[in-house]
């Protein structure tokens, strides 16, 4: 059977954060200041920390459905309550600044806040640090804001000379389990990633994060390949999406190009000003190879990166079994000279 991808909204191509600055890829502490606009052959991305696009309602519906099935994707360890409030207020301010027509946060004279989200028809008056002033007190400020931004959110506590992932709402994890990892240190969570330890990448990243100041957020990108437009490729449901990695090798070329997606995470690293916690925002973008190949510089660059990528990295990223096929497919799409 041949699968064709449904047509993508144009903005998903135009704002796709193509992650490869060169023809080879290795792990590095690839951080840069947030908010810098990056032009691409298809458009541009990166103007703001939070990005609202044409998938807004679809992705938030999907997040709600995932949380309904598996509440462990959202957790706030008790000591992270101030960080959750801090995150909510920071994200609301950020949305209001980036999209003032859709989102507004105002502080009223009595110290309460009014939050308006016109995309979802929300108008909520709340008091900072008072859960009972939110629509669903039990899911708290993180649950409230998590249902209004497309980004996954992790909150890190800085203590004992380290960072600990002690809260978050992570529904679109790429091959890890937030429910299992919550409470781990930054170094522990990255334990399974090959190469990075010997290179000191994770330790350096942690030192960097521990020195972040609220006034200067940073960002980085990460990437992998995903089969289908599946946002939730968490370890919890590995048995559901794992077989796709076998299936994809049996498909015809057209189905392959429509199904395999370059999956890019834009991660923002933010020191929350009030609690002092570090906020990781993880936004996932997916572009089918079929679409990507229509932008020749992207096709050529992706081909070069995938072809050169060392085995252990392709293995960890989960596409070792169809990497050669992806390389061949991208090669076959080269413009005929």
């Amino acid at each position: 059977m041949t699968t064709t991808a449904p047509p993508l909204e144009r903005d998903l191509v135009e704002t796709f954060p193509f992650p490869f600055p060169q023809d080879t890829y290795r792990y590095s502490t690839n951080v840069e200041p947030a908010g810098k606009l990056v032009p691409t052959p298809a458009g541009q991305w990166g103007a703001s920390m939070l990005h609202v696009d044409s998938e807004y309602h679809h992705e938030l519906d999907e997040r709600a459905a995932i949380l309904q099935r598996d509440p462990s994707r959202q957790q706030v360890l008790p000591h992270m309550r101030p960080a959750a409030w801090d995150a909510m207020l920071t994200l609301m301010q950020e949305l209001g600044t980036a999209y003032p027509r859709e989102f507004t946060l105002t502080r009223d004279d009595d110290g309460t806040f009014t939050w308006i989200n016109r995309k979802q028809g929300i108008e909520q008056r709340f008091t900072y640090a008072d859960e009972t002033t939110l629509p669903e007190p039990e899911t708290g400020p993180l649950g409230f804001i998590g249902s209004q931004v497309q980004e996954d959110i992790a909150l890190l506590d800085q203590r004992e000379g380290q960072l600990f992932v002690d809260a978050g709402i992570i529904t679109f994890a790429a091959d890890w389990s937030f429910g299992f990892d919550v409470g781990m240190s930054f170094l522990e969570i990255h334990g399974p990633v090959p190469r990075v330890h010997d290179m000191g990448v994770i330790a350096r990243a942690q030192t960097f994060l521990m020195r972040l100041q609220p006034s200067t957020p940073y960002r980085r990108t990460n990437w992998t390949l995903t089969i289908g437009r599946r946002l939730d490729v968490s370890t919890e449901v590995y048995h559901e999406w794992g077989p796709d990695r076998g299936w994809i090798q049996t498909t015809d070329d057209q189905t392959f190009g429509a199904s395999v997606h370059l999956r890019v995470e834009v991660q923002h690293l933010v020191r929350l000003p009030d609690s002092g916690a570090v906020m990781f925002l993880i936004r996932t973008y997916m572009l089918p190879l079929e679409q990507l190949a229509r932008i020749e510089p992207w096709r050529a660059r992706t081909h070069a990166v995938l072809q050169e990528l060392p085995e252990d990295m392709a293995d960890y990223k989960g596409f070792i079994s169809y990497r050669d096929r992806a390389v061949a497919w991208l090669e076959s799409q080269a413009p005929s000279s």
């Binding site: 000591h79 992270m80 101030p82 960080a83 506590d157 800085q158 203590r159 002690d166 100041q213 609220p214 006034s215 020191r271 000003p273 609690s275 002092g276 916690a277």
Partner: peptide, 11 residues
């Protein structure tokens, strides 16, 4: 802007 180097321990 304010700089933090003496933060309270959340735990």
């Amino acid at each position: 802007p304010p700089r933090s180097a003496f933060a309270p321990q959340l735990k």
